[in-house]
């Protein structure tokens, strides 16, 4: 019994370390060499469209609603202390520091990450990656690298948009509907929000999340079993692993950035 448990622990441990090693090697091979800009820029732009532009709708709608909910909840709590003027900083800080980067990363993993995994997995299952290799074209450079860069670039942009539209949503509910003074809302917010500490730290967070989420997504696709079952499993794993890693890393980053 104890032996079995130990064996399972060891097996899982070696599996995790092997996956880490393989995925690190894959990423290294994909993005290490200096890109050939005239050839790769169009590929990255195409992927930016698929990964970034097509995720805009879900990001903007969720951002607006989350900002509105924050405005409503924050108001009902703060009014109890007569502190409804602090609604602005409450909405802005929660969005910029936490919800913007984290919820964007979670939505991105669900919307773009799963699509990346499925697409790459399907290319593998239909031997498109193999045939590329046989045409002496490295699929890591041709397929993986542009997708990775597109994810890495677009997620911070999406997070900024998420926070901005969320603050506007908070303004709509707090000011337009519940009647918080518009001047107070914005000026108290400006006094409390620091560009470097809050906005830039949020951007750094979402850069880190972008790195891990896209990495997990492309690796899961690249290493999946080339069958329909394998692809569906890999897609699920992308969403589950990426979400867990994002939430875990968020705690670490928050304690590094905002902890004393």
């Amino acid at each position: 019994m104890l032996g079995n448990g130990l064996a399972a622990l060891g097996r899982n441990g070696t599996n995790i370390i092997m996956a880490l090693g393989q995925s690190g090697l894959m990423l290294f091979n994909a993005i290490w060499a200096l890109p050939n800009f005239s050839k790769n820029a169009p590929l990255v732009i195409k992927q930016l469209y698929v990964v970034g532009v097509q995720s805009l709708a879900i990001i903007l709608v969720s951002g607006l609603f989350i900002g509105m909910v924050l405005g409503l909840q924050g108001y009902t709590i703060l009014i109890g202390y007569g502190a409804e003027n602090s609604l602005g900083p409450m909405v802005a800080l929660s969005l910029l520091r936490e919800l913007g980067p984290v919820v964007t990363a979670l939505l991105f993993a669900g919307r773009a990450g799963s699509a990346l995994t499925a697409e790459i997995g399907l290319m593998k299952a239909t031997e498109q990656l193999s045939s590329m290799e046989l045409m002496a074209v490295d699929p890591l450079r041709r397929v993986i690298a542009p997708r990775f860069w597109a994810g890495f670039i677009s997620m911070p942009i999406l997070a900024l948009l998420f926070s901005s539209i969320g603050i506007i949503g908070g303004h709509l509910v707090g000011v337009e509907w519940l009647g918080v003074d518009v001047g107070n809302f914005w000026s108290v917010m400006q006094a409390a929000v620091d560009f470097q500490d809050d906005v830039l730290n949020g951007v750094i967070k979402s850069l880190v999340f972008a790195f891990v989420v896209t990495w997990i997504a492309v690796f899961r696709g690249y290493s999946c079993e080339p069958t329909s079952e394998g692809i569906s499993k890999a897609t699920t794993q992308t969403v589950v692993h990426a979400s867990l890693v994002v939430l875990g890393m968020d705690f670490v980053l928050t304690s590094l950035m905002f902890g004393e």
């Binding site: 802005a92 942009i157 999406l158 901005s164 400006q190």
Partner: peptide, 14 residues
Amino acid sequence: GLAALLFLALSVAN
């Protein structure tokens, strides 16, 4: 994206 950054820098943060 840049517009959002500008908005956050100018109207939200000090």
